[in-house]
Amino acid sequence: MALSPRQRGRVLFCLRGIAIAVLLVVLLGPIAWIFLTSIKPLSDVYTMTLFFDPTLDNFRAIFERPFYVGDRLLNSLAISGFTVLIGVPVALAAAYSFSRFSMRFKKTLFFGVLATQFVPPIVVVLPFFLMFRQLHLLDTWTGMVWINLSIVLPFAIWMLKGFIDTIPVEMEEAAMTDGATRLRVIRDIVLPVTIPGVFVAGIFCFIFSWNDFLYALILTRKEAVTLPVVLSTFYTEEGDRWELMAATGTFILLPMFAISYFVQRHFVHGATQGSDR
């Protein structure tokens, strides 16, 4: 069957459209299904139906005994929040230093910091468990923030250094020749232009510690349990409470989706700058 180039083009266009539609269903379907399940009445949870009376019962149930998802939500927010608040400024200072100053062993040092990301978390978590047991930091916010910094810091340093590298150094030099001190230059010239980068790095760090499961599973018991770990407590003796997992999952997802909007803007813009318009 011979097709003219024009027909061929049309067939290809349709195929591409179908492929994209399938892709979107594959990527969005599971997420949509979690949302749907979270508002289904119990009688419909284990069916495939799309028609049901939406209810908030599942949400009510997870906030009550014995799950207390409200407390877990607070833990998750506090641990991720403090991790970002401590991690990002510390990383910013180091990133500025890595970007602007020359020093001996700088490359080695920077590579060393990045190389810590190659260390599997399971290696780090064993000694942390033993250390925290001795220091009474098991099941505390402090302990969790501390260990989350290990995921977040090297990444944030790398990201912020890349960002500062793209800022032309001339303005800083000009201000310095005018007699401004380095600290003033950092505060008045560098900080304002770095804000977008800091924001994106902060978002990534928040996502990483918000989604952490392994550390929280091992290092928390009762008080500092975070949302992802709550999910595993719904495998109960009366069976798996899928509707409650879905409701909790909705809480895990919501902030992620709100902020991933910004991340996506950063990424897609960064990746395709100027090509869309």
């Binding site: 990527l27 997420i31 992802p228 999952g249 895990i252 997802l253 992620m256």
Partner: peptide, 8 residues
């Protein structure tokens, strides 16, 4: 999908 918690 990347922003979704692996645990969930």
């Amino acid at each position: 999908p990347f922003a979704m918690s692996p645990a969930l």
